[in-house]
Amino acid sequence: MGVIEVEQIKEVVSCVFILAGVIFMLISTIGLLRFPDFYIRMSAITKGASLGVGLILLGLGIYFNQPDIMLKVLAIITFIFITAPVAAHVISRTAVRNHSPFWNKTNLKEFEEYQEKLHLDKIKNHDRYREEQKTEKKPSGAGDNV
């Protein structure tokens, strides 16, 4: 009797976690489709997806209820919560360097200066690249100092 009750409690708790995680995943996916600009999409989905995957995996660990599986699940969750912001930062940095357009309602007052500086750097690098090509006739080294 008691064993069966514990099994049922485990299943119900696992179900609740999995449903919450799936709902977060669905909401972040709809956000990925609906939002108007790259940066808003990025900031909407990074947390939603990592939180959803974390909840689903936690439900899995609670359902099996064994130490080694729980250890693997915690390892995956830690890894996701470390790597998701790093990947988001790298991708959005790429978007900034590539002049990906902002939404037209975005308030860019504090960012314009930096954008101009990036643009000037790009032109400068390009000029230097050309000069090196003229003098050495060998294109080398200009792309490294980003």
Binding site: M25, S28, T29, L32, M42, I45, A49, V53, I56, L57
Partner: peptide, 24 residues
Amino acid sequence: LPDRITAFDLIVANVIGIIAIYTE
């Protein structure tokens, strides 16, 4: 292209979730 990388990231997260549910 950054949009596509973002979508790729989300696809990987989705597949991890699907694998977890398949395990159960």
